[in-house]
Design a protein around this nucleic acid. Structure first.
Lengths: 396, 396
DNA sequence: AGGTAAGTTAGGTAACTTAACTAACTAACC
DNA sequence: GGTTAGTTAGTTAAGTTACCTAACTTACCT
């Protein structure tokens, strides 16, 4: 990839430049003089690098501030130009695929979506490409102003090879997503697992803002978990970190099943997965089985007071609670964020999870729900681009 | 701590110097010219920095190598001088406290030990200090040649405050270990949890050599787990990462107990802890209960074929197996290393654990046992000093 | 001798720093 | 109300440092 260089003067200049840009981004309107103080860089250095940043469009001079009480020249405020470049985020979900453009601050400027399943055969990426072009036109953005496109895929993803190892809902196996996408877009493509992408989003603009160690647990079609450690996404030795669908929360139950029972999915999946919930419910209903039942229906029934549904969902929530407690005992995150489909009805089951966690986890840990809403996936994908993109400073 | 400086020329020089030293350390006897190639630094730069390293004693010129087939000047081989400085490692265990001196390559040059419990009241650190002085004398090492002393403590450790939050076996609660020790030694003191220290050791010189993502599970008095992620120790948001004594592997069993049952220790501890094992065995024996029974006795009995002991230990091993499977599903490490007291009898129960892991964990993962032997603790403590010590280059 | 490789010397460049400057403003005094 | 002193923001100029390239010496092979 990028040439291995480490010790020359250019490296230190770029590093300082990055720091200055970061400082302006974080500390809002700020004067050169203040940057010099906080970053322990000399005033001339800051001025020179800011000059370049101004030229390159990353930064704007935004009017003069007031002078201090004791007098002195007015500071010239610098602000980060979040419109210096644009980023595309794509959230490939089991049901729909969302495409969005955002500025550098994560403001979603426009979105498009289409049903995933209908377009699987014909070329899902072709459709995304169409939406990207529509959004470019709509928002009057020129291609060379786009930093890159981030894609979150619902399955294990090898970000080194750029392939989706396994995404059952899309029937993708070792699908070279990054290569396929790179052929369609004139800017860099970054891909990752949907849960990983979700933590990135939540840690950037959601309820895990600025937390260095945080875990997002997504409960939807399956159960998954994205882990951030030391402010960085942790993917594991073989991109399988956070596969909590395999957690065993009941060893006696587990021993009853043979290996076959879990082929392709884990112990916990067989209790908390959508199909499993429906099956359990049907079994409990016996001859009163309902046609076309979904997991959401079961939860809705439970909420409305149905005793059978309540028993089934309580069991599910219990399993999830213990799984979360186990994650906490191992990872000791600052907070656990709950996301995914079921997180909407969180007020109902959150107390039970909190209770289990407070009783059984090694440390008291805050449990929150996502705050990014339905755009979490695309926001995370955008964040992925910002984090992985090496040269977020190169002139263009 | 160390002054915040990042952008000046001195920084890049030190960085390059470190890289060169690292390169010599790793790639054995190596010529300046080869360093220049592998590190992409110019020959004059390498020569200048090597000159300094020679002066400071970190590096030695070790005879000339042979010239190449096509002729040319013979290379001057450089080797890392592992005797440039020395490090002390202290392993405070529940039963004994080991003190060792090592060189920079991790060679243990001498050790001393004393029973921990007998010296708790009188001043454990005073005794360590005595042993350190003895070793300095014995090995003819002058104080100012010592980089630091690393101490592994059997309990949750706050490495920022430098305190041991809780170490039941020593009756330490918020004990300011680092401060207390710093008062006794004329060189820097570094402290950490015994399990954390153990992974460091195992990753430096043991069976996890050079692995970036690895987990060490220690089964002794309690069960604990040290986690390395991206080549760095991961301690968690509140130094409680890896508290697998709290993992719940049987939610129905867990729900039977009230919170009180686990006060201070976790669900798994209540099945795999020494006292728990003994209690289970006595219960199984009924009126045939044995006086003065220890957990080790139970395992020994099981190994000799005692049916009651076999049943009890099998249950314990099962719990441990599922706990390890859960750790793997969450962390996805390159390998899991088993350590601690019981790891000696590993050939006996390892197959069962491997079976559970292969059946229930999300990914196939190698399970190994420690290879550092009884010195793992002190080697880890030495490694801690090497890793935490910022200025492993400052002249002295 | 001619070729090759290791390591050194000399000169140039690029980035930082400090010190001194200009610019712009407040406060206070005559 | 005008002048002067003090303060802060940002620029200019000179000096430092650590890197690089290019040309060299040393030492060895055939």
């Amino acid at each position: 990839m990028t040439l291995f260089k480490m010790g020359n003067a250019a490296y230190i200049k770029e590093k300082n430049k990055r720091h200055i840009l970061q400082c302006i981004k974080e500390h809002g309107p700020i004067a050169r003089s203040r940057i010099s103080e906080t970053l322990h860089l000399s005033k001339p250095t800051v001025s020179a690098l800011v000059e370049e940043l101004l030229h390159e469009g990353w930064v704007r001079e935004e009017g003069n501030g007031d002078a201090g009480q004791l007098g002195g020249r007015k500071p010239i405020y610098l602000t980060f130009n979040s419109r210096a470049a644009y980023i595309f985020g794509v959230d490939i979900g089991g049901t729909k695929t969302l495409t969005a453009v955002s500025d550098l601050a994560g403001n979603i400027l426009g979105t498009r979506e289409f049903p995933t399943q209908d377009n699987l055969q014909y070329g899902l990426l072709k459709k995304v490409q169409k939406h990207v072009q529509e959004l470019l036109l709509e928002q009057q953005i020129s291609e060379d102003r786009v930093l890159g496109i981030g894609i979150g895929a619902p399955g294990t993803t090898d970000i080194v090879q750029g392939t989706v190892i396994d995404a059952p809902s899309l029937n993708w196996h070792d699908y070279p997503l990054q290569n396929e996408a790179s052929a369609l877009f004139p800017f860099p493509v970054f891909i990752d697992n949907d849960v990983n992408v979700a933590v990135l989003g939540e840690q950037w603009l959601g309820s895990a803002k600025n937390m260095s160690n945080v875990v997002l647990i997504s409960i939807g079609t399956g159960i998954g978990c994205g882990i951030m450690i030391n402010g960085q996404l942790y993917r594991g030795a073989s991109f399988a970190a956070g596969e909590i669908g395999y957690l065993v929360t009941d060893k006696n139950e587990a021993k009853k099943h043979t290996k076959r029972a879990f082929e392709g999915y884990g112990f916990l999946d067989s209790f908390t997965g959508g199909p499993a919930i429906v099956a359990k419910m049907q079994e409990a209903l016996g001859d009163k089985a309902i046609q076309e039942l979904t997991a959401k229906d079961v939860f809705d029934l439970a909420k409305s007071g149905d005793q059978t549904a309540l028993a089934v969902t309580e069991e599910v929530v219990d399993h999830i609670g213990f799984a979360i407690a186990n994650v906490i005992s191992i990872i000791n995150p600052e907070a656990v964020i709950l996301g995914g489909g079921i997180s909407k009805s969180s007020p109902w089951y959150l107390p039970r999870i909190e209770q289990i966690v407070s009783e059984f986890a090694a440390v008291k840990t805050v449990i929150k729900t996502t705050t990014c809403g339905p755009n979490l996936g695309v926001i995370g994908a955008v964040s992925l681009v910002l984090r992985e993109h090496e040269s977020a400073l190169k002139t263009f």
